[in-house]
Design a protein around this nucleic acid. Structure first.
Lengths: 344, 344
DNA sequence: GGGGTTCGTTGAAATGTTTCATACGGCGTA
DNA sequence: TACGCCGTATGAAACATTTCAACGAACCCC
């Protein structure tokens, strides 16, 4: 403790009667220092309550021990599962993970990136508001490895890890068609979000391939991917004339689907009998809904883990090559789409 | 950019034809430098792509621009809402927030704290595995402000922000009793978690005060506060002989309640008619459940915000006094406990 | 025209660590 | 005995920034 100031290596060295360099060696190359002095130094550190100053270490070493993840929406559990995957990989590499949340606002994202660059983080994982934003290129240009998570960068100038969202949309709607639905709602928005665009696109693709009339795939746009917007979409759905009303809905994510589910049941309709519902992401709460939700599963933690490995490779391997990892989504069928023709 | 190295103030100074100190002034005291030189320096910074090195700044200044929150369970949305409250307060103070997750493991918590001390964060907010752990005292002893979130420290040597969990347990069970329930399950665990202990304690207290027989308050312990454990508790509940089976359940948090809700509905029983359910925390998914969940609301974001203010006060105000802030929980009644005697 | 004041800029010191070339002492070998 | 070697320990330099005392120039007032 000494006179109020937090002790430095210098204080430890003085207390142990050795030089600065030796104290540093005890911390970084314990094998080169003799057991007796090492013990003496360690005791001095304990006595003084010495804590290494990471800023000084980093300044000298030029490298930090942190990774960062800038997530798109902190209120969506999906991103926390991704973060957990990153965290595990970071832990294995003995790194800390700095988690930021842009809340889907580009200017917030930019502020975070700026700070992270100042911190000289080893690498940045990001689910960007817009993967083509030029400030992402600026970050990469400064030599900081950047990996896009849950999106693909058109230019291919970053690594990226994503799920095939078009395929995800396809299998969701194909599943509904297989259950005999011939009038289906697709719910999601805003279309400025790439994931949304592609999931809807996949839905339309397969609908056309199945030879079903385009008008029977009803698009209900939403302003965000939230539970509240899901409820509101449910109200609009209920307001449609019976002849036009879909018997099934594909939502662009699980939050929407949960909101829709709630609104539907609350208004006295039955799921799946009156309305079948498919979500996307397969967050934990999807399975836990009162009517367990059919959903398109993304390998959430795996996504994060893979992204972390890519960013570390770029940071440490001079021969690193950018790659675009695409995972395959998988339909998890649950009660919310249980067949209406069960006895067949 | 220059020769591969990232440019420093020195490079900027050379490019702008001024001294080191002037560049620093442009960044930290723009008002003292003349408009023309300032503009010249700013252009040089932009041209070179200069990014201030935060480690060096921090080393010299002795103070970081970060707060940290060590949360107890990253899979519980409650803690993310708390984090969001902290984040907003941090943003107002122009600080970054470092979020860590101990996953309820004390050794992980200790590792995080160690790293945060090395980073010289301005303050640490923590929902600890055990508020009496000695390593928390060690952190405080090194002069880093520590605030306990969602728990109260017995010794009162830290600030803390919490909700009155005993009261929360009381109002939950009182609500059920008011609805006419005379046999109630209380579900939660492990009891090593202080929040759980107190919520159960409050339940027992009010039960006794209402003069109801202790045996009719049935305790079902769980191994964790998760959805899966909630389901498992539901199975045990269903397995009880009809005469002994409670008509209502109070769960120590919403995840348990959601699991219980799902299991109950899945097994063909109706909520609230066959089983009324009260949760705790009032996370967003509580309202969004297919049968909207009655829950004891904690002011989640407010908790985080208040904690952040306390930690900042301790960091900056020499006259700081430790305080224990206790918020009052509030019952939010929804369909999962809608009265069985509605027509009265 | 000299003394004082203000404004803008400078240069050096200081922060806590790591690294690296160097020094030292003891020991085995020629 | 001289030499080289090995295992340890040392001290100084370097990292990028901030801060602060000091300095020069311009200006104002008697």
């Amino acid at each position: 403790m000494v006179n109020g100031r937090t002790p430095s290596v210098k204080d430890v060295a003085a207390a142990a009667g050795v030089s600065l360099g030796t104290v540093s060696n005890v911390m970084n190359r314990p094998e080169v220092v003799s057991p007796t002095t090492r013990e003496r130094v360690e005791r001095a550190m304990a006595d003084l309550g010495f804590v290494r100053n990471e800023s000084a270490r980093q300044l000298r070493a030029g490298t930090s021990r942190t990774l960062a993840y800038v997530m798109l929406d902190g209120s969506n559990p999906f991103f926390h599962d991704v973060a957990q995957g990153i965290e595990m990989a970071a832990e294995d590499a003995d790194l800390s993970l700095f988690i930021c949340n842009s809340n889907s606002r580009a200017e917030r994202e930019e502020v975070h990136l700026d700070r992270l660059m100042q911190q000289r983080v080893q690498g940045i994982l990001i689910t960007p508001v817009n993967p083509e934003a030029t400030y992402l290129d600026d970050v990469a240009a400064r030599g900081i490895p950047v990996v896009i998570v849950d999106r693909v960068h058109a230019g291919g100038t970053f690594c990226s890890v994503a799920v095939d969202d078009i395929l995800g949309g396809r299998i969701a709607v194909e599943h509904l068609a297989e259950q005999g639905h011939t009038r289906v709602a697709v719910i999601g928005g805003p279309e400025s979000i790439g994931q949304v665009r592609e999931r809807l696109e996949g839905a339309r693709e397969i609908w056309a391939e199945l030879g079903l009339p385009p008008d029977d795939l009803v698009y209900l746009p939403t302003a965000a991917l939230t539970v509240a917007e899901g409820r509101s979409a449910g109200e609009r759905l209920a307001g449609l004339p019976t002849r036009r009303r879909p018997t099934a809905a594909f939502c662009a994510n699980d939050l929407l689907a949960l909101g829709l589910l709630q609104q539907t049941i609350g208004s006295g309709l039955r799921v799946p009998d009156d309305l079948a519902i498919v979500g996307f992401d397969d967050i934990e709460f999807a399975a836990a809904a009162a009517v367990p939700l059919t959903s398109v599963r993304q390998p959430r933690q795996e996504l994060g883990r893979a992204a972390a490995h890519l960013v570390l490779d770029e940071a440490t391997n001079p021969a690193h090559q950018h790659q675009q990892l695409i995972f395959t989504p998988e339909l998890v069928a649950r009660a919310s789409t249980a067949s209406r023709i069960r006895s067949f």
